[in-house]
């Protein structure tokens, strides 16, 4: 099958999205399809740029460009799903979040309001007529149901190098790998460290815009002996640090999907997450594969102490997490099969 994949390209701002986009394209090729990746340059500012890009993609018809018939188009991001194709499958990674769940009405400018209106109309128009509509996670599907009154089926995909995660003896620390951004809420974990009764240490890995603020917070509470920002990490470091952790903390605000949950499960570690964390809640079962808590430092501290007090039980929860991951059937072959399903 000849498949066109559309997505965005935000120059030199790379993250999970790039892995997802390249992962689908590679998986399609591995399964013997001819796949081509088309990425639209995307700028968040000014608003007129987004208007123009929306208008532009709507002019594109990929039924058979230059006489090259394309069997299916798979779009992953806004506004690529606006292109025209009779067999257009949309797998929404996330919508333009600033105009949905991250919208702050009291701070919005006139231009932003206009853009929001245009994007809502655009999404309704194009997502509604997709041949099949998938969401990156149940959370993303819920948002589409809430904001656009659309029904999307969640379709999960595995994290990068899923088969290489492993489990080893726990060395009594909580691991938290994520970009250092406000939405990831590492500050909850730093604050929780103040309430810990057990000697558990906290390793926060990653880089990002909030590094300085988090570091100041650690120093302010005199937690340098217990909490550490370890900075960027290699793939091997990531796997080793998961493997020796007691538990993994991942408590973002309304995350779309979140590879960290899955990586922790693949490393047989229990996950501490929050009730409002979005994606992780689809995988973490409270008291079985981790803890789902209110986003409060005290609650998080209590869970960490509990994990430390019952290390054998914690390990068991981790193993339950691995089993749950396997049961969920998160594999690339399944993703390809569902995206190319004829029905």
């Amino acid at each position: 099958m000849r498949v066109l994949v559309t997505a965005n390209l935000v120059p030199f701002l790379h993250g999970g999205a790039d892995y997802h986009i390249e992962g689908v394209t590679r998986a399609l090729k591995v399964h013997g399809h001819e796949a081509e990746l088309l990425r639209f340059p995307f700028r968040f500012q000014p608003e007129s740029d987004i208007h123009r890009l929306m208008e532009y993609v709507e002019t594109l018809d990929f039924t058979a460009p230059n006489g090259q018939a394309i069997d299916r188009t798979i779009s992953l991001q806004f506004p690529g799903y606006g292109v025209n194709h009779p067999e257009h499958v949309v797998w929404v990674m996330h919508q333009h979040r600033a105009m949905y769940e991250l919208w702050e009405d009291d701070k919005a400018t006139k231009e932003q309001r206009e853009l929001r209106k245009a994007i809502h109309a655009f999404d309704k128009r194009h997502l509604g007529r997709a041949k099949a509509l998938f969401a990156n996670s149940r959370r993303v599907a819920e948002r589409m149901a809430t904001y656009n009154d659309l029904t999307a089926r969640p379709l999960y995909h595995p994290p990068f190098d899923a088969e290489r995660f492993y489990c080893d003896e726990d060395w009594g620390y909580v691991f938290c790998p994520s970009r250092l951004e406000s939405l990831k809420r590492q500050d909850l974990l730093i604050e929780a460290a103040r309430h810990l009764k057990s000697p558990v240490r906290i390793l926060i890995a990653g880089s990002g815009g909030q590094a300085e603020r988090y570091q100041r917070l650690i120093e302010k509470h005199k937690l340098s002996d217990r909490v550490r920002l370890t900075g960027r990490f290699s793939e091997a470091e990531k796997r080793a640090w998961y493997a020796h952790s007691l538990a993994v903390f991942f408590g973002p605000k309304d995350e779309d999907y979140g590879y960290i949950t899955l990586e922790a499960m693949l490393s047989s570690k229990p996950v501490i997450t929050c009730e409002d964390s979005g994606g992780p809640r689809e995988f973490v079962q409270h008291d079985e594969t981790g803890w789902v808590l209110p986003p409060e430092p005290e609650a998080i501290a209590a869970a960490i102490d509990e994990a430390y007090a019952n290390r054998e039980r914690s390990a068991q929860m981790g193993r339950a997490g691995l089993d749950a991951y396997h049961r969920a059937g998160i594999t690339w072959p399944q993703v390809v099969e569902r995206l190319l399903d004829r029905t």
Binding site: R201, L203, S234, A240, H244
Partner: peptide
């Protein structure tokens, strides 16, 4: 602890 983890990763 961090040193030890880094050596494991290497």
């Amino acid at each position: 602890l961090i040193d030890r983890l880094k050596s494991v990763a290497r």
